[in-house]
Design a protein around this nucleic acid. Structure first.
Lengths: 232, 232
DNA sequence: CTGCACACGTGATCC
DNA sequence: TGGATCACGTGTGCA
């Protein structure tokens, strides 16, 4: 990447160095040169202007970089005096979190080809308020009365829908439900109740599809649902 | 921020400067000094070690920063040779996008107290594939047959649900639907069709609630839906 | 005073 | 060539 071997050293003061001294006003600094620079040949002048352009270019570059860094400080709502290093580390962490969140929401909610059920209880929801929370996900053929069937199933289990995310594409549907029940009526064991209830719901779904449409539906319309709306 | 006024210039070569010269191997550079440095007093030695520590510290700092920058290059899946400036600009843009996405999904999907409808067509979805996409959002009282009613409404309009995000809390429900129709049957004007259809759907909803429950439902169970599950 | 973080100007490098 | 970017070592201020 870099010249790791070049031990050649060019002494910058020969052309007016002095490494760090910030004067935002572009003062002509030739008078400060400690040694004989009276022989200002045209070559030296050209080199001086080259260096000046270089210097100002670098300044602009640093400004652009720091501008973005300040924007990131605001976006992450952290102290304006946060170090560059820790700030960038936080940015990496945050981008990872956000990517995973949107990926969970967008990418996994695609109806699968085969019927599937998954039930689990939310361990990380440890509010001791007498409620217990489960997440139910399933894929099956779509049918008009599926939603009502779903609502009645939950009602029979004495559970409420906290939120639902559902995707329907080309006759297949995928539903992710977060449901909540009272702890007096439900425990971790209710996972099995939910599993059984939704298994029979899927069986009913298959039967109804078989009778209603003869089992054959066109699949050509299927697409990935969010590709047209938002990217991952 | 910086000393904008200090015009005082310290010539670094007085203590062995030469501003830039990359030798990753920490060679003893005293032999390169162009002027009389033979009087290596203890002060000079101490200063030399100070400078060496300073130099190495800066190297470590740069390493930390560049490490995070490389991670960000991977996270944004852009060219490994992307400039720092443009990379950081892209990071700012990406973080903004991701923040808005999760905010749309998590925070806005809370049922409002009053009944509301909003219909708009997706301008930014410019796929020229003969389909036109709308987003419908509405809040109303919940009822068991709402979903079926919704499905039938869309079917009567010859539209398909691309995806739906629905939240139900304490008897109130908020639904965000992305629906798609054929361009031969629909245009931007179909916004009004959708608006009318969902207005009558909400009217039916209110009537059914009035008749079924006498209009009074307890609201004490209401909570913000996602506070228990994921942070914003 | 020690350590840490930043801005600066410069040489080298790439297109 | 020239413009743009990088790593480097240093000066300087802050805790």
């Amino acid at each position: 990447m870099q010249p790791e071997i070049s031990d050649q050293i060019l002494y910058s003061f020969l052309i007016g160095g002095s490494c760090a001294s910030s004067t935002t006003t572009t003062t002509t600094r030739s008078s400060f040169y400690p040694f004989a620079m009276e022989d200002t040949s045209s070559q030296d002048k050209a080199l001086a202007t080259t260096l000046r352009k270089h210097r100002e270019g670098e300044r602009m570059r640093r400004e652009r970089i720091n501008s973005s860094l300040n924007k990131l400080r605001n976006l992450l709502s952290c102290n304006p005096k946060t170090d560059k290093a820790t700030l960038l580390a936080k940015v990496v962490q945050r981008v990872n979190e956000l990517k995973q969140q949107t990926l969970e929401i967008s990418n996994e909610n695609v109806p699968s080809e085969t019927d599937e059920i998954s039930v689990l209880n939310f361990e990380n929801c440890s509010n001791d308020d007498g409620r217990i929370i489960f997440k139910v996900s399933f894929c099956c053929e779509d049918r008009p009365d599926l939603m009502q069937d779903l609502v009645e199933t939950l009602k029979s289990l004495q559970m409420e829908t906290l939120y639902a995310y559902m995707t329907t594409i080309g006759g297949r549907t995928r539903n992710d439900l977060v449901v909540v029940g009272n702890k007096e009526q439900h425990s971790v064991e209710s996972v099995k109740l939910l599993q059984n209830a939704f298994e029979s719901l899927l069986e009913r779904s298959n039967q109804s599809v078989m009778m209603g449409h003869g089992g054959g539906r066109e699949r050509s319309k299927r697409r990935r649902p969010l590709d047209h709306i938002k990217r991952v």
